[in-house]
């Protein structure tokens, strides 16, 4: 943890707000999938393009592997969401979020010449919302807030006792 940082009040609140809204997005995505017993990542995986598509197809092709992928994805989204909102294990949650977003981005990179069956909700070239969210989490990794506004503050103090 980089303790040499100091923030103005507005810097702290806005960084925390960024952390919380990204957390909200993750948590809701996780809960929606959790609440739908029929949800599966198979459609998304099969729609993969780009250099890593082979990897994503192979994840989708085995029902047992797919089950693990689905479970990890739902659990990951939910835990990361909770972590970011509450500021608990914030660093772990942030890194986890970056990894998940990297997977989403790499499976559907908005590069020239790649076409997707799954409709996108905007127009993208190289940069899409996954990448922006990923970079935002990288920012939060170097400008952490959990140990100031969040459970990590309490964790830290209690552990130090």
């Amino acid at each position: 943890m980089n303790n040499s940082l100091n923030y103005s009040k507005s810097q702290l609140y806005l960084l925390t707000a960024l952390r919380v809204v990204i957390g909200w997005h993750f948590l809701y995505e996780g809960l929606v999938k959790l609440a739908n017993p029929d949800w599966s990542s198979i459609g998304f995986l099969l729609d993969s393009q780009g250099v890593f598509s082979g990897l994503f197809y192979s994840l989708a092709s085995n029902p047992d592997v797919l089950k693990v992928v689905d479970t990890l994805n739902i659990a990951g989204l939910t835990m990361i969401g909770l972590g970011l909102i509450l500021g608990s294990f914030t660093r772990l949650a942030t890194i986890g979020g970056i990894i998940l977003l990297a997977f989403y981005y790499l499976s559907h990179p908005p590069f020239i010449g790649l076409k997707y069956v799954l409709p996108m909700e905007g127009s993208y070239l190289v940069v899409n919302k996954n990448l922006i969210e990923l970079v935002a989490l990288c920012v939060l990794l170097v400008f952490p807030t959990g140990h100031m506004l969040g459970f990590d503050r309490l964790n830290y103090l209690i552990r130090k006792r």
């Binding site: 925390t16 919380v20 957390g23 909200w24 948590l27 809701y28 909770l82 909102i85 509450l86 500021g87 100031m148 506004l149 969040g150 459970f151 990590d152 503050r153 309490l154 103090l157 209690i158 006792r161």
Partner: peptide, 21 residues
């Protein structure tokens, strides 16, 4: 008890967001 009240408030500052969700 040794963690002061201000720390607790700051520690749980974002919990209401869960309530909102």
């Amino acid at each position: 008890k040794s963690v002061n009240r201000r720390d607790v408030l700051k520690g749980i500052a974002t919990v209401p967001v869960l309530g909102a969700m």
